[in-house]
Design a protein around this nucleic acid. Sequence first.
DNA 1: CGACCTAAAC
Length: 526
Amino acid sequence: MRVLCNALSSCAKTLNWNLGIRIHAYMIHSGYEDNLFLSSALVDFYAKCGAIADASKVFSGMKTHDQVSWTSLIAGFSMNGQGRDALLLFKEMLDTQVKPNCFTYSSVISACVEQKEALEQCSTLHAHVIKRGFKNNKFVISSLLDCYAKCRQIDDAVLLFDETSEKDTILYNSLISGYSQNLYSEDALKLFVEMRKKDLRPTDHTLSSILNACGSLTVLLQGRQLHSLVIKMGSERNVFVTSALIDMYSKGGDIDEARRVLDLTAEKNSVLWTSMIMGYAQCGRGSEALELFDHLLTEQGFIPDHVCFTAVLTACNHAGFLDKGVEYFNKMRTHYGLSPDQDQYGCLIDLYARNGNLRKAKDLMEEMPYNANRVIWSSFLSFCKIHGEVELGREAANQLIKMDPHNAVPYITLAHIYARNGLWTEAAEVRSLMQRRRLRKPAGWSWIEVDKHVHVFGVGDVAHSQSNEIYAELEKIYLGMIFHIGVPMATARLLELASKKREGNRLIFEVHQPLIVANEMLIDGG
DNA sequence: CGACCTAAAC
């Protein structure tokens, strides 16, 4: 019996489906079917193999359930993306005599993320955990911290981290990824440095999170150091790490290095391809993005998903390929049976608006089966500004103000639109409304409009002026940034885009205030 | 017999 139990456990770990089902057959044949331990192991096996229906069937066929069988199925739902079912099953468990233990809590807390009332569920479970005395279990703490971070409650995550006396690698990983996901990238870097000082060995999880942070910050210098660490650790084989590397190099402006990483990867998956296409799209090399995509379709039998189409359509946007964009959008449904979601509609709307066809863009917003979100309205508003469209601009600005009354940007843009069209009274009204609501531009930030295709959101207060002066200002600001953040590539790329006045390019470049850790070596001997 | 942290998006 013990042998069977261990064998099933191994099958679960190695996803050995064929052996697992043979053991199940043998169990039925030899009358072990009612054994609690074996049945629990079986639930775990089916759940881990993704056969959640079979796991449920075994579970409901059991005469009694213990902590392990409950937990195995709860964890099974959670890891198969059915968090809702995991929570429901947990509630069912609470009505029985079997008490959840720390295994149950770490599973059910992980299931909370991406649920509707995630934060509420998570806090409730946190209270349970304290009451039942599991708050020192490192698995429970990590899942709680992760859940808080994913609910954007980074302060709660940090509190949990600080309260924990024995911090292990996984706890560091949880907070580093939390910082990175919430765009506290610099804090992620700092924590990584601290982790290394404590001689905690990074894992593949650490690397993918920290590379992600480097991507957000566009710090190539640090990214390259980490790349050498990746190679030293042999982590190039991990697709999570590889994808973070490709993304980091793309965001940092070294798209050719991103391509080299991709080419050197033996087993490429759709995330890697999509990252690469998006990389080309974002740096303005739209044709190369489409070339790669078309090559994948014809030569590799590649089946694109929604995200991939977002990347392809983004490439069309940035390169100004209106007809091609519409063609790909239609192909989604006709060739691949994918119904476009909000993001692909967003791209198409963006594409029309960019081309000055604001009416068509607006019609699409009304036709599509989704409510336009903040992203879509913001992009639409900025094109109303570029094309001097007052009525639609006003509507867009009002929508955005309704969604987020404390964001100053739509007010400022609307005032610009009015002023450009000589509507001075209306412009003054918007400004006084802003004053009444005590809204101002975030300190140290301002919009710089380079020409009608290139916008830069940068540091420094630059007065509105003509193109040449703006280039000079840009250079001053961004050369300063090169010094601060040590990322010549992204900056050079930005200046190149700006000075070439490429048609159809719109670039929003966000950079934070000078980095504290930017010039510190992240790894020894890197 | 079971549990925590990692990837692509206008």
